[in-house]
């Protein structure tokens, strides 16, 4: 029935323990990202956050999203990030005050988010009542590919124009004289 890589006698990896482990790791390293003064440490903690979120995607049987998460965010963006860090003056940024003192908006936003959490906790089932469509893990990536080259061909192709505009923009902004 299920053509996944595990057979029925193997226990599925998607256990409650893994869920809480990965979520806790993501939250912990997320807190580290914003509390470390050294940007390199923050960047490393961010990698850990993104990796644990990728693990959560795997648990939801979405290997394609997990793969994209690792390749794009952890790979590409982090390399870019480290480059930026190498180019800016770390010692100076460590001495600078890194938090703005916006207490009132901060508290308001925290209260709003807290309310949202309570709402989701109480009414969570009603919010996401529709059953999740499960797809055999091996076919997942294949189906995404099929959709990209058939129904979603046009947005997929037009994204090239978006990239072109972004490249032109980067060059225009970086050019010495114009």
């Amino acid at each position: 029935m299920c053509t996944g890589w595990y057979t029925s006698d193997m226990a599925p990896v998607a256990t409650t323990f893994f869920f809480y482990f990965l979520s806790g790791l993501a939250i912990l390293s997320g807190v580290l990202v914003i509390t470390r003064k050294n940007p390199v440490h923050s960047a490393l903690a961010l990698i850990l956050t993104l990796l644990s979120v990728a693990g959560l995607y795997l648990m939801l049987y979405a290997p394609f999203v997990a793969g994209v998460q690792i390749i794009l965010y952890v790979g590409g963006i982090m390399v870019l990030f480290l480059f930026v860090i190498m180019l800016v003056n770390i010692e100076r940024s460590e001495r600078e005050k890194q938090f703005n003192q916006q207490w009132l908006p901060g508290i308001l936003a925290a209260c709003g988010l807290g309310l949202l959490f309570v709402l989701i906790y109480v009414k969570g089932k009603a919010l996401f009542s529709q059953p999740v469509i499960t797809m055999p893990e091996t076919e997942n990536t294949q189906r995404v590919g099929m959709m990209l080259y058939s129904n979603y061909m046009f947005p997929f192709e037009i994204a090239s124009l978006l990239l072109l505009v972004a490249i032109i923009g980067a060059v225009v902004m970086a050019k010495k004289r114009i």
Partner: peptide
């Protein structure tokens, strides 16, 4: 969304 981004990025520049 993609066309919104194309139009926005051009305008930013």
């Amino acid at each position: 969304f993609i066309s919104l981004e194309i139009s926005s990025i051009s305008t930013y520049i």
